[in-house]
Design a protein around this nucleic acid. Structure first.
Length: 427
RNA sequence: GCUGACGUCGCAUAGCCUGGUAUUGCGCUGGAUUUGAAAUCCAGUGUCCCUUGGACUCGGGAGUUCGAAUCUCUCCGUCAGCGCCA
């Protein structure tokens, strides 16, 4: 959410951002109009309250002096003030809520380096990494590999849960754990603190970190308790300091989170979503930074560099793209994606997303830090390190051999004793 | 789930019984003093507004009242004990 100050003093900045995104100014104008209404109402209510407070003080004084006549007189004068305050106050509150409901829909101000474009086809290339894997045979898609090796049971998962759930079995499940451990250690070595968060959150905290439309399409709504299953540990880790004034000496706070992630994936479909590429539940190792505003762009590059170094250690072939205006969500001011090469489908597909959300989440979460002139919103950043299901797909496809076995990346060998390949599961 | 205690400004505390508009300390910021630092002293240090001023704020919400941190109801949370449990 953008600060109200911005609508009052720098609405042009928001307008030109909307122009870059190619969306209309209607919502901005609505917010500004409602704000004006609210301020008028607020002023009126304040004035009446002032009368009431003055009267209350006079009554106290009169009572002290024992002048009951004077008390009665004042009481009769202020008899209906309460009702007026009630009525105007309610209208003011509703106007403010309305203003903020619309304000929540207005996206973050994009960084100037975000390329202009309509959709994901106009994301620009940032860099290429690794060596393209070469095959003397026709490389298979991962759905064939998991079936052939009996590493994933989709059918039985559908039976007990539903489609897009899966049982991970045998060596592929072991590789999944190895990936978690490897990436957590990697980030711990770079000064990140491991945090395992709650996997459910209440509505209030959730509204602080995500786009409102996600409640309909992404999040599992858990009743009767009114919780939401987290779609990523970014959400509980970022919201962790909600409603707090953070000691500046604690900043930057760097966390590595590991958690299961739950996504409804309403409306998702298509051939490329087969297998375990797009699923309702997966594990993700995530990087989170909470920092002072002036540091956030450096941290954003650091987060990306961490990803690059980590994926290089896994010896995978991938590229980094700079997400364009049309493909950017509501919350991020700038976003890089890592896209891994999938030789089975001859295409690059998203495996990592690295965002600077500037003060957008912090404003909603009322998450501030102390400065020499008042409290100021922090900046929040998040980046995938490894989403295990997708990393598994990339590894399977890039490390596959002609007989259908999959070589284990060097850095993960220490979790596999003498083994060099992932072996087939018996059942 | 039951019983009880508790929730006050960044932190810690007083005020609650008996209603009259949040005390004190620490930390932080600025100033004085100092060669510098420490110590000391002074001021400031929750939010909002149309800022010589005003309104709001004591876990959230509702109620009683001219007036609520204070009384009542309700919800949430924390802690302790009991019960259940991986």
């Amino acid at each position: 959410m953008l600060e109200m100050r911005m609508f009052r003093e720098a609405a042009d900045v928001i307008r030109s951002d909307h122009d870059r995104r190619g969306i209309s100014h209607d919502l901005i104008d609505e917010v500004i109009a409602l704000d004006k209404q609210w301020k008028d109402l607020r002023y009126k209510v304040d004035q009446i309250r002032r009368q009431r407070n003055d009267a209350a003080r006079e009554i106290a004084a009169a009572k002290k002096a024992g002048d009951t006549q004077e008390v009665e007189k004042i009481l009769s004068q202020v008899a209906n003030l309460g009702a007026q305050i009630e009525e105007l106050g309610t209208t003011a509150d509703e106007t403010e809520k309305n203003r903020d409901r619309i304000r929540m829909k207005i996206p973050n101000i994009l960084h100037e380096s975000v390329p202009i474009g309509d959709d994901e086809n106009e994301n620009t290339s940032h860099s290429m990494h690794g060596k393209i894997p070469e095959f003397k045979f026709e490389p298979k898609v991962h759905n064939d590999l998991i079936e052939e090796n009996k590493w994933v049971d989709l059918g039985r998962a559908a039976k007990i849960a539903g489609s897009r759930f899966y049982y991970l079995k045998g060596d592929l499940a072991r590789l999944e754990l190895a990936l978690q451990q490897f990436s957590v250690e990697f980030l711990v070595n770079r000064g990140y603190t491991l945090v395992q968060p709650p996997v459910m959150m209440n509505r209030d905290a959730y509204e602080g970190v995500t786009d409102l439309s996600d409640f309909e399409t992404v999040m599992y709504d858990i009743q009767p308790d009114g919780y939401y299953a987290i779609a990523t540990s970014e959400h509980p880790l970022t919201a962790m300091f909600m409603d707090e004034v953070i000691e500046p000496s604690l900043l930057p706070i760097k966390m590595v989170g590991v958690s299961p992630c739950f996504r409804r994936e309403v409306g998702a479909h298509g051939l490329s979503d087969k297998g375990i590429w797009r699923v309702h539940q997966f594990t993700k190792v995530e990087q989170i930074v909470i920092c002072k505003p002036e540091e956030s762009w450096n941290h954003h590059e650091d987060l990306l560099q961490n990803c690059i170094d980590l994926w290089d250690e896994l010896e995978l072939y991938y590229r980094v793209v700079n997400i364009c205006t049309g493909d950017m969500g509501t919350v991020a001011a700038k976003k890089y994606d890592l896209e891994a090469w999938l030789p089975g489908v001859q295409n690059f597909k998203e495996v990592v997303s690295c965002s600077n959300c500037t003060d957008y989440q912090a404003n909603r979460l009322r998450m501030r830090y102390r400065t020499s002139d008042g409290n100021s919103s922090v900046h929040t950043l998040n980046s995938t390190a490894v989403a295990t299901s997708r990393a598994l797909v990339a590894i399977m496809e890039q490390y596959q051999e002609e007989d259908g076995r999959v070589r284990i990346p060097k850095k993960l060998l220490r979790w596999f004793n003498e083994q060099t390949h992932l072996e087939k599961t018996n059942w």
